[in-house]
Design a binder for these strands. Sequence first.
DNA 1: TAGTGGTCTAGACCACAAA
DNA 2: TTGTGGTCTAGACCACTAG
Lengths: 241, 241
Amino acid sequence: MTTTNRLSSPLTAPVNWQMIRADVLERIQSGKWQPGDGVPKEADLAAHYGCTRSTVGRALRDLAQAGFLERRRRGGTIVAANPVRKAPLEVPILGDAIRKAGHAHDFRVIRAETGPAQQDEASALAIAAGARVFRYDALHLADGKPFQFESRVLNLLAAPEILQADLTQMPIDEWLLRNRPLERVTIEISAIAAPQAAALHLAIAPDTPVLLVRRISWARQKSIGLLHLYHQPDHRIRTGF
Amino acid sequence: MTTTNRLSSPLTAPVNWQMIRADVLERIQSGKWQPGDGVPKEADLAAHYGCTRSTVGRALRDLAQAGFLERRRRGGTIVAANPVRKAPLEVPILGDAIRKAGHAHDFRVIRAETGPAQQDEASALAIAAGARVFRYDALHLADGKPFQFESRVLNLLAAPEILQADLTQMPIDEWLLRNRPLERVTIEISAIAAPQAAALHLAIAPDTPVLLVRRISWARQKSIGLLHLYHQPDHRIRTGF
DNA sequence: TAGTGGTCTAGACCACAAA
DNA sequence: TTGTGGTCTAGACCACTAG
Protein backbone atom coordinates (compact mmCIF):
# COMPACT_ATOMS: atom_id res chain seq x y z
CA MET A 1 0.00 0.00 0.00
CA THR A 2 2.56 2.57 1.04
CA THR A 3 4.96 2.96 -1.83
CA THR A 4 8.10 5.03 -2.11
CA ASN A 5 7.83 7.64 -4.78
CA ARG A 6 10.51 8.23 -7.37
CA LEU A 7 11.38 11.23 -9.42
CA SER A 8 11.67 11.53 -13.17
CA SER A 9 14.49 13.37 -14.88
CA PRO A 10 16.35 16.10 -12.98
CA LEU A 11 15.19 19.65 -13.42
CA THR A 12 17.77 22.32 -14.00
CA ALA A 13 15.65 25.45 -13.92
CA PRO A 14 16.56 27.92 -11.22
CA VAL A 15 14.52 27.18 -8.13
CA ASN A 16 13.74 28.63 -4.77
CA TRP A 17 12.12 26.95 -1.84
CA GLN A 18 8.65 28.20 -2.68
CA MET A 19 8.81 26.66 -6.13
CA ILE A 20 9.86 23.36 -4.62
CA ARG A 21 7.05 23.62 -2.12
CA ALA A 22 4.58 24.27 -4.92
CA ASP A 23 5.93 21.38 -7.00
CA VAL A 24 5.74 18.87 -4.17
CA LEU A 25 2.31 20.13 -3.17
CA GLU A 26 1.09 19.69 -6.72
CA ARG A 27 2.23 16.06 -6.68
CA ILE A 28 0.28 15.50 -3.48
CA GLN A 29 -2.87 17.31 -4.50
CA SER A 30 -2.98 15.76 -7.94
CA GLY A 31 -2.80 12.34 -6.35
CA LYS A 32 0.54 11.40 -7.88
CA TRP A 33 1.83 10.98 -4.35
CA GLN A 34 -0.82 9.30 -2.21
CA PRO A 35 -1.34 9.61 1.54
CA GLY A 36 1.04 7.26 3.29
CA ASP A 37 3.50 7.19 0.41
CA GLY A 38 7.15 7.87 1.01
CA VAL A 39 8.71 11.06 -0.29
CA PRO A 40 12.28 10.95 -1.68
CA LYS A 41 14.85 11.95 0.86
CA GLU A 42 16.16 15.49 0.96
CA ALA A 43 19.45 14.67 -0.73
CA ASP A 44 17.68 13.09 -3.71
CA LEU A 45 15.27 15.98 -4.04
CA ALA A 46 18.17 18.40 -3.88
CA ALA A 47 19.84 16.58 -6.75
CA HIS A 48 16.58 16.56 -8.68
CA TYR A 49 15.95 20.25 -8.27
CA GLY A 50 19.57 21.20 -8.62
CA CYS A 51 19.90 22.98 -5.29
CA THR A 52 21.22 22.30 -1.83
CA ARG A 53 19.62 20.20 0.83
CA SER A 54 18.93 23.32 2.91
CA THR A 55 16.61 24.69 0.27
CA VAL A 56 14.71 21.45 -0.08
CA GLY A 57 14.52 21.20 3.69
CA ARG A 58 12.94 24.62 3.92
CA ALA A 59 10.21 23.61 1.47
CA LEU A 60 9.48 20.28 3.12
CA ARG A 61 9.52 21.78 6.60
CA ASP A 62 6.91 24.27 5.50
CA LEU A 63 4.69 21.56 4.03
CA ALA A 64 5.04 19.50 7.18
CA GLN A 65 4.03 22.47 9.29
CA ALA A 66 0.97 22.93 7.10
CA GLY A 67 0.00 19.31 7.71
CA PHE A 68 0.74 17.83 4.28
CA LEU A 69 3.81 15.84 5.25
CA GLU A 70 5.01 13.87 8.25
CA ARG A 71 8.73 13.78 8.85
CA ARG A 72 10.90 11.67 11.10
CA ARG A 73 14.61 11.43 11.52
CA ARG A 74 15.87 8.21 10.09
CA GLY A 75 12.30 7.29 9.14
CA GLY A 76 12.11 9.70 6.24
CA THR A 77 9.25 11.83 4.99
CA ILE A 78 5.80 10.57 4.00
CA VAL A 79 2.67 12.18 2.67
CA ALA A 80 0.42 12.68 5.70
CA ALA A 81 -2.05 9.81 6.06
CA ASN A 82 -4.69 11.95 7.78
CA PRO A 83 -4.05 15.44 6.50
CA VAL A 84 -5.41 17.51 9.37
CA ARG A 85 -5.54 20.93 7.84
CA LYS A 86 -5.55 23.94 10.10
CA ALA A 87 -7.60 27.04 9.42
CA PRO A 88 -6.15 30.06 11.20
CA LEU A 89 -8.75 31.66 13.44
CA GLU A 90 -7.79 35.25 14.11
CA VAL A 91 -8.08 36.52 17.65
CA PRO A 92 -8.03 40.31 17.28
CA ILE A 93 -8.49 43.17 19.69
CA LEU A 94 -12.24 43.57 20.04
CA GLY A 95 -12.57 46.93 18.30
CA ASP A 96 -10.21 45.88 15.54
CA ALA A 97 -12.59 43.22 14.28
CA ILE A 98 -15.20 45.90 13.74
CA ARG A 99 -12.83 48.45 12.20
CA LYS A 100 -11.32 45.80 9.96
CA ALA A 101 -14.78 45.11 8.57
CA GLY A 102 -14.98 48.77 7.61
CA HIS A 103 -17.28 49.94 10.37
CA ALA A 104 -16.92 52.65 12.96
CA HIS A 105 -16.23 51.22 16.39
CA ASP A 106 -17.62 52.52 19.63
CA PHE A 107 -18.26 50.94 22.99
CA ARG A 108 -20.20 51.53 26.19
CA VAL A 109 -19.16 50.24 29.57
CA ILE A 110 -22.17 48.66 31.22
CA ARG A 111 -20.67 47.33 34.40
CA ALA A 112 -17.32 47.62 36.13
CA GLU A 113 -17.21 46.41 39.71
CA THR A 114 -15.48 44.01 42.02
CA GLY A 115 -17.08 41.07 43.75
CA PRO A 116 -16.53 37.47 44.81
CA ALA A 117 -15.97 34.78 42.20
CA GLN A 118 -18.76 32.31 41.75
CA GLN A 119 -18.12 28.61 41.74
CA ASP A 120 -17.98 28.11 37.98
CA GLU A 121 -15.95 31.27 37.41
CA ALA A 122 -13.47 30.28 40.06
CA SER A 123 -12.94 26.84 38.59
CA ALA A 124 -12.53 28.27 35.10
CA LEU A 125 -9.90 30.68 36.40
CA ALA A 126 -8.33 28.13 38.73
CA ILE A 127 -8.72 30.40 41.74
CA ALA A 128 -10.48 29.95 45.08
CA ALA A 129 -14.26 30.32 45.08
CA GLY A 130 -15.12 33.65 46.59
CA ALA A 131 -11.81 35.27 45.60
CA ARG A 132 -12.17 38.89 44.55
CA VAL A 133 -12.69 39.37 40.83
CA PHE A 134 -13.37 42.33 38.60
CA ARG A 135 -16.53 42.16 36.54
CA TYR A 136 -16.66 44.15 33.36
CA ASP A 137 -19.49 44.21 30.84
CA ALA A 138 -19.46 46.30 27.71
CA LEU A 139 -21.36 46.66 24.49
CA HIS A 140 -19.47 47.12 21.24
CA LEU A 141 -21.13 49.04 18.45
CA ALA A 142 -20.48 48.89 14.73
CA ASP A 143 -21.66 52.04 12.98
CA GLY A 144 -23.71 52.78 16.09
CA LYS A 145 -25.52 49.44 16.09
CA PRO A 146 -25.02 46.78 18.77
CA PHE A 147 -22.50 44.26 17.49
CA GLN A 148 -21.21 42.18 20.37
CA PHE A 149 -21.80 42.05 24.08
CA GLU A 150 -18.69 41.49 26.15
CA SER A 151 -18.77 40.06 29.65
CA ARG A 152 -15.54 39.57 31.54
CA VAL A 153 -14.40 38.26 34.87
CA LEU A 154 -10.83 39.28 35.65
CA ASN A 155 -8.60 37.66 38.22
CA LEU A 156 -7.58 40.52 40.49
CA LEU A 157 -4.70 38.47 41.89
CA ALA A 158 -3.11 38.53 38.43
CA ALA A 159 -4.00 42.09 37.40
CA PRO A 160 -4.80 44.31 40.39
CA GLU A 161 -3.79 47.51 38.58
CA ILE A 162 -6.90 47.22 36.43
CA LEU A 163 -8.77 49.02 39.21
CA GLN A 164 -6.69 52.16 38.59
CA ALA A 165 -7.21 52.18 34.81
CA ASP A 166 -9.67 54.56 33.18
CA LEU A 167 -11.74 52.05 31.28
CA THR A 168 -14.16 54.59 29.88
CA GLN A 169 -11.37 55.92 27.65
CA MET A 170 -9.49 52.77 26.75
CA PRO A 171 -11.27 49.50 25.94
CA ILE A 172 -10.24 46.90 28.46
CA ASP A 173 -8.88 44.79 25.64
CA GLU A 174 -6.26 47.36 24.84
CA TRP A 175 -5.36 47.79 28.48
CA LEU A 176 -4.84 44.06 28.77
CA LEU A 177 -2.80 43.95 25.59
CA ARG A 178 -0.37 46.52 26.97
CA ASN A 179 -0.24 45.29 30.53
CA ARG A 180 -0.82 41.57 30.33
CA PRO A 181 0.12 40.26 26.89
CA LEU A 182 -1.55 36.94 26.19
CA GLU A 183 0.65 33.94 26.58
CA ARG A 184 -1.89 31.18 26.42
CA VAL A 185 -5.58 31.17 25.57
CA THR A 186 -8.29 28.56 25.42
CA ILE A 187 -11.25 29.29 23.19
CA GLU A 188 -14.62 27.59 23.05
CA ILE A 189 -17.25 28.43 20.48
CA SER A 190 -20.83 27.35 21.08
CA ALA A 191 -24.41 28.19 20.19
CA ILE A 192 -26.75 29.21 22.98
CA ALA A 193 -30.08 30.89 23.53
CA ALA A 194 -29.25 34.53 24.24
CA PRO A 195 -29.33 35.15 27.99
CA GLN A 196 -31.39 38.08 29.19
CA ALA A 197 -28.58 40.59 29.66
CA ALA A 198 -27.04 39.88 26.27
CA ALA A 199 -30.41 39.99 24.52
CA LEU A 200 -31.24 43.28 26.16
CA HIS A 201 -28.08 45.05 25.03
CA LEU A 202 -27.97 43.45 21.61
CA ALA A 203 -31.61 44.49 21.16
CA ILE A 204 -32.81 41.01 20.22
CA ALA A 205 -35.49 38.73 21.59
CA PRO A 206 -34.39 36.61 24.54
CA ASP A 207 -33.60 33.00 23.64
CA THR A 208 -32.60 33.91 20.09
CA PRO A 209 -29.75 31.58 19.04
CA VAL A 210 -26.45 33.44 19.25
CA LEU A 211 -22.80 32.57 18.93
CA LEU A 212 -20.94 32.52 22.21
CA VAL A 213 -17.17 32.75 22.24
CA ARG A 214 -15.71 31.86 25.60
CA ARG A 215 -12.07 32.68 26.14
CA ILE A 216 -9.84 32.02 29.12
CA SER A 217 -6.46 33.69 29.05
CA TRP A 218 -3.28 32.99 30.95
CA ALA A 219 0.02 34.74 31.51
CA ARG A 220 2.93 33.67 33.66
CA GLN A 221 1.14 30.56 34.93
CA LYS A 222 -1.75 32.64 36.22
CA SER A 223 -5.24 32.97 34.81
CA ILE A 224 -5.90 36.52 33.70
CA GLY A 225 -9.54 36.45 32.90
CA LEU A 226 -12.62 34.79 31.54
CA LEU A 227 -14.33 36.41 28.57
CA HIS A 228 -17.78 35.74 27.19
CA LEU A 229 -18.60 37.31 23.84
CA TYR A 230 -22.21 37.25 22.63
CA HIS A 231 -22.80 38.11 18.99
CA GLN A 232 -25.68 39.25 16.85
CA PRO A 233 -27.79 36.34 15.56
CA ASP A 234 -26.58 36.80 12.01
CA HIS A 235 -22.92 36.89 12.98
CA ARG A 236 -20.57 34.43 11.35
CA ILE A 237 -17.04 33.55 12.24
CA ARG A 238 -15.18 33.23 8.99
CA THR A 239 -11.97 31.40 8.34
CA GLY A 240 -10.50 28.99 5.83
CA PHE A 241 -7.38 28.27 3.87
CA MET B 1 6.55 56.71 21.22
CA THR B 2 8.17 54.06 19.10
CA THR B 3 11.65 53.53 20.42
CA THR B 4 14.44 51.37 19.13
CA ASN B 5 15.46 48.74 21.61
CA ARG B 6 19.04 48.04 22.53
CA LEU B 7 20.71 45.00 23.90
CA SER B 8 22.76 44.63 27.04
CA SER B 9 26.00 42.69 27.17
CA PRO B 10 26.62 39.95 24.61
CA LEU B 11 25.73 36.41 25.57
CA THR B 12 28.18 33.68 24.83
CA ALA B 13 26.18 30.63 25.84
CA PRO B 14 25.56 28.16 23.02
CA VAL B 15 22.30 28.96 21.35
CA ASN B 16 19.90 27.57 18.80
CA TRP B 17 17.10 29.36 17.04
CA GLN B 18 14.46 28.21 19.48
CA MET B 19 16.35 29.70 22.41
CA ILE B 20 16.62 32.98 20.55
CA ARG B 21 12.94 32.83 19.77
CA ALA B 22 12.15 32.23 23.41
CA ASP B 23 14.43 35.04 24.53
CA VAL B 24 12.96 37.58 22.14
CA LEU B 25 9.43 36.46 22.98
CA GLU B 26 10.14 36.89 26.67
CA ARG B 27 11.24 40.47 26.04
CA ILE B 28 7.97 41.13 24.23
CA GLN B 29 5.67 39.41 26.67
CA SER B 30 7.33 40.91 29.71
CA GLY B 31 6.80 44.34 28.22
CA LYS B 32 10.50 45.17 27.92
CA TRP B 33 9.91 45.58 24.18
CA GLN B 34 6.60 47.37 23.63
CA PRO B 35 4.28 47.12 20.63
CA GLY B 36 5.58 49.40 17.90
CA ASP B 37 9.14 49.38 19.20
CA GLY B 38 12.01 48.58 16.88
CA VAL B 39 13.88 45.33 17.28
CA PRO B 40 17.66 45.31 16.74
CA LYS B 41 18.64 44.26 13.25
CA GLU B 42 19.60 40.69 12.55
CA ALA B 43 23.31 41.38 12.39
CA ASP B 44 23.30 42.99 15.84
CA LEU B 45 21.27 40.19 17.33
CA ALA B 46 23.63 37.68 15.77
CA ALA B 47 26.57 39.41 17.44
CA HIS B 48 24.69 39.53 20.71
CA TYR B 49 23.81 35.86 20.71
CA GLY B 50 27.11 34.80 19.22
CA CYS B 51 25.69 33.05 16.19
CA THR B 52 25.16 33.73 12.52
CA ARG B 53 22.51 35.89 10.97
CA SER B 54 20.79 32.82 9.53
CA THR B 55 20.04 31.48 12.97
CA VAL B 56 18.67 34.79 14.20
CA GLY B 57 16.65 35.06 11.01
CA ARG B 58 15.06 31.71 11.62
CA ALA B 59 13.93 32.76 15.07
CA LEU B 60 12.57 36.13 13.99
CA ARG B 61 10.83 34.66 10.94
CA ASP B 62 9.04 32.24 13.21
CA LEU B 63 7.93 35.01 15.56
CA ALA B 64 6.74 37.09 12.62
CA GLN B 65 4.72 34.16 11.31
CA ALA B 66 3.14 33.79 14.73
CA GLY B 67 2.11 37.44 14.64
CA PHE B 68 4.48 38.86 17.27
CA LEU B 69 6.74 40.77 14.89
CA GLU B 70 6.37 42.74 11.68
CA ARG B 71 9.31 42.69 9.32
CA ARG B 72 10.15 44.77 6.29
CA ARG B 73 13.17 44.91 4.06
CA ARG B 74 15.10 48.03 4.69
CA GLY B 75 12.50 49.06 7.27
CA GLY B 76 13.67 46.64 9.91
CA THR B 77 11.72 44.58 12.42
CA ILE B 78 9.26 45.94 14.96
CA VAL B 79 7.13 44.42 17.68
CA ALA B 80 3.68 44.04 16.16
CA ALA B 81 1.48 47.00 17.02
CA ASN B 82 -1.76 45.02 16.84
CA PRO B 83 -0.70 41.49 17.60
CA VAL B 84 -3.31 39.46 15.75
CA ARG B 85 -2.80 36.04 17.22
CA LYS B 86 -4.01 33.04 15.28
CA ALA B 87 -5.63 30.04 16.89
CA PRO B 88 -5.36 26.97 14.67
CA LEU B 89 -8.78 25.51 13.97
CA GLU B 90 -8.41 21.89 12.97
CA VAL B 91 -10.41 20.67 9.98
CA PRO B 92 -10.37 16.90 10.39
CA ILE B 93 -12.05 14.07 8.55
CA LEU B 94 -15.51 13.86 10.09
CA GLY B 95 -15.12 10.50 11.76
CA ASP B 96 -11.67 11.41 13.05
CA ALA B 97 -13.03 14.16 15.26
CA ILE B 98 -15.19 11.61 17.02
CA ARG B 99 -12.51 8.95 17.27
CA LYS B 100 -9.98 11.48 18.48
CA ALA B 101 -12.31 12.34 21.35
CA GLY B 102 -12.20 8.69 22.35
CA HIS B 103 -15.60 7.65 21.06
CA ALA B 104 -16.66 4.94 18.66
CA HIS B 105 -17.63 6.37 15.28
CA ASP B 106 -20.47 5.16 13.13
CA PHE B 107 -22.57 6.81 10.47
CA ARG B 108 -25.83 6.34 8.59
CA VAL B 109 -26.48 7.60 5.11
CA ILE B 110 -29.84 9.33 5.09
CA ARG B 111 -29.99 10.61 1.57
CA ALA B 112 -27.89 10.18 -1.56
CA GLU B 113 -29.47 11.42 -4.76
CA THR B 114 -28.99 13.75 -7.66
CA GLY B 115 -31.07 16.77 -8.45
CA PRO B 116 -30.94 20.35 -9.70
CA ALA B 117 -29.07 22.99 -7.73
CA GLN B 118 -31.17 25.59 -6.01
CA GLN B 119 -30.46 29.25 -6.37
CA ASP B 120 -28.50 29.73 -3.15
CA GLU B 121 -26.59 26.48 -3.58
CA ALA B 122 -25.64 27.37 -7.12
CA SER B 123 -24.32 30.77 -6.14
CA ALA B 124 -22.35 29.31 -3.25
CA LEU B 125 -20.78 26.77 -5.61
CA ALA B 126 -20.42 29.26 -8.45
CA ILE B 127 -22.30 27.03 -10.87
CA ALA B 128 -25.42 27.59 -12.95
CA ALA B 129 -28.73 27.40 -11.14
CA GLY B 130 -30.38 24.11 -11.99
CA ALA B 131 -27.08 22.34 -12.69
CA ARG B 132 -27.07 18.74 -11.54
CA VAL B 133 -25.74 18.26 -8.03
CA PHE B 134 -25.38 15.31 -5.70
CA ARG B 135 -27.15 15.63 -2.37
CA TYR B 136 -25.84 13.61 0.50
CA ASP B 137 -27.11 13.66 4.08
CA ALA B 138 -25.67 11.54 6.83
CA LEU B 139 -25.80 11.25 10.57
CA HIS B 140 -22.61 10.67 12.52
CA LEU B 141 -22.81 8.81 15.79
CA ALA B 142 -20.45 8.90 18.75
CA ASP B 143 -20.79 5.79 20.89
CA GLY B 144 -24.10 5.16 19.17
CA LYS B 145 -25.53 8.60 19.99
CA PRO B 146 -26.26 11.25 17.35
CA PHE B 147 -23.33 13.65 17.23
CA GLN B 148 -23.49 15.67 14.06
CA PHE B 149 -25.76 15.87 11.06
CA GLU B 150 -24.02 16.32 7.75
CA SER B 151 -25.73 17.76 4.70
CA ARG B 152 -23.77 18.13 1.49
CA VAL B 153 -24.31 19.41 -2.00
CA LEU B 154 -21.61 18.22 -4.38
CA ASN B 155 -20.83 19.76 -7.73
CA LEU B 156 -21.15 16.86 -10.17
CA LEU B 157 -19.22 18.79 -12.80
CA ALA B 158 -16.19 18.64 -10.54
CA ALA B 159 -16.60 15.11 -9.17
CA PRO B 160 -18.83 12.96 -11.37
CA GLU B 161 -17.23 9.70 -10.20
CA ILE B 162 -18.89 10.11 -6.82
CA LEU B 163 -21.94 8.42 -8.33
CA GLN B 164 -19.98 5.18 -8.73
CA ALA B 165 -18.61 5.16 -5.19
CA ASP B 166 -20.07 2.89 -2.54
CA LEU B 167 -20.88 5.48 0.09
CA THR B 168 -22.43 3.02 2.52
CA GLN B 169 -18.98 1.56 3.14
CA MET B 170 -16.76 4.62 2.98
CA PRO B 171 -17.77 7.95 4.50
CA ILE B 172 -17.99 10.52 1.75
CA ASP B 173 -15.34 12.54 3.55
CA GLU B 174 -12.76 9.84 3.01
CA TRP B 175 -13.75 9.41 -0.59
CA LEU B 176 -13.26 13.12 -1.16
CA LEU B 177 -9.93 13.10 0.63
CA ARG B 178 -8.60 10.45 -1.70
CA ASN B 179 -10.15 11.70 -4.91
CA ARG B 180 -10.39 15.46 -4.51
CA PRO B 181 -7.85 16.69 -1.96
CA LEU B 182 -8.82 20.07 -0.60
CA GLU B 183 -6.98 22.97 -2.06
CA ARG B 184 -9.01 25.84 -0.72
CA VAL B 185 -11.80 26.00 1.81
CA THR B 186 -13.97 28.74 3.23
CA ILE B 187 -15.52 28.12 6.61
CA GLU B 188 -18.33 29.96 8.33
CA ILE B 189 -19.44 29.23 11.87
CA SER B 190 -22.80 30.47 13.05
CA ALA B 191 -25.55 29.79 15.55
CA ILE B 192 -29.00 28.91 14.26
CA ALA B 193 -32.25 27.40 15.39
CA ALA B 194 -32.03 23.74 14.42
CA PRO B 195 -33.93 23.14 11.17
CA GLN B 196 -36.45 20.32 11.16
CA ALA B 197 -34.32 17.69 9.42
CA ALA B 198 -31.32 18.30 11.64
CA ALA B 199 -33.43 18.34 14.80
CA LEU B 200 -35.10 15.09 13.80
CA HIS B 201 -31.87 13.18 13.29
CA LEU B 202 -30.05 14.74 16.23
CA ALA B 203 -33.09 13.88 18.39
CA ILE B 204 -33.51 17.38 19.72
CA ALA B 205 -36.42 19.82 19.79
CA PRO B 206 -36.78 21.91 16.63
CA ASP B 207 -35.47 25.47 17.01
CA THR B 208 -32.95 24.47 19.66
CA PRO B 209 -29.85 26.65 19.18
CA VAL B 210 -27.14 24.64 17.44
CA LEU B 211 -23.74 25.33 15.95
CA LEU B 212 -23.68 25.32 12.18
CA VAL B 213 -20.42 24.92 10.35
CA ARG B 214 -20.71 25.78 6.68
CA ARG B 215 -17.82 24.79 4.46
CA ILE B 216 -17.29 25.38 0.77
CA SER B 217 -14.36 23.55 -0.78
CA TRP B 218 -12.47 24.12 -4.00
CA ALA B 219 -9.93 22.21 -6.04
CA ARG B 220 -8.38 23.17 -9.35
CA GLN B 221 -10.40 26.37 -9.66
CA LYS B 222 -13.66 24.44 -9.35
CA SER B 223 -16.05 24.27 -6.43
CA ILE B 224 -16.24 20.74 -5.10
CA GLY B 225 -19.04 20.95 -2.61
CA LEU B 226 -21.00 22.74 0.02
CA LEU B 227 -21.14 21.19 3.47
CA HIS B 228 -23.47 22.02 6.34
CA LEU B 229 -22.63 20.46 9.68
CA TYR B 230 -25.21 20.67 12.47
CA HIS B 231 -24.02 19.80 15.97
CA GLN B 232 -25.57 18.77 19.24
CA PRO B 233 -26.67 21.77 21.33
CA ASP B 234 -23.92 21.20 23.88
CA HIS B 235 -21.20 20.96 21.26
CA ARG B 236 -18.23 23.28 21.53
CA ILE B 237 -15.54 24.01 19.05
CA ARG B 238 -12.31 24.20 20.98
CA THR B 239 -9.12 25.88 19.98
CA GLY B 240 -6.51 28.18 21.45
CA PHE B 241 -2.79 28.77 21.63
C1' DT C 1 24.42 0.94 14.08
C1' DA C 2 23.51 3.36 10.10
C1' DG C 3 20.56 6.53 7.67
C1' DT C 4 17.60 10.28 7.85
C1' DG C 5 16.15 14.89 9.08
C1' DG C 6 17.45 19.09 12.19
C1' DT C 7 20.46 22.58 12.75
C1' DC C 8 24.34 25.65 12.40
C1' DT C 9 28.17 28.27 9.92
C1' DA C 10 30.37 31.72 6.96
C1' DG C 11 29.72 33.73 3.19
C1' DA C 12 27.31 35.75 -0.84
C1' DC C 13 23.93 38.05 -3.77
C1' DC C 14 19.46 39.98 -4.35
C1' DA C 15 14.85 42.52 -3.55
C1' DC C 16 12.61 45.86 -1.58
C1' DA C 17 11.46 50.20 0.52
C1' DA C 18 12.85 54.12 3.42
C1' DA C 19 15.40 58.21 3.36
C1' DT D 1 20.74 55.63 -2.94
C1' DT D 2 21.52 52.40 0.64
C1' DG D 3 20.40 49.60 4.56
C1' DT D 4 17.60 45.93 5.82
C1' DG D 5 15.61 41.41 5.46
C1' DG D 6 15.11 37.18 2.15
C1' DT D 7 17.32 33.63 0.18
C1' DC D 8 20.77 30.45 -1.39
C1' DT D 9 25.25 27.68 -1.12
C1' DA D 10 28.53 24.14 0.44
C1' DG D 11 29.75 22.09 4.06
C1' DA D 12 29.60 20.17 8.74
C1' DC D 13 28.00 17.96 12.97
C1' DC D 14 24.32 16.25 15.72
C1' DA D 15 19.82 13.76 17.27
C1' DC D 16 16.81 10.57 16.70
C1' DT D 17 15.10 6.10 15.42
C1' DA D 18 14.23 2.17 12.28
C1' DG D 19 16.06 -2.10 11.28
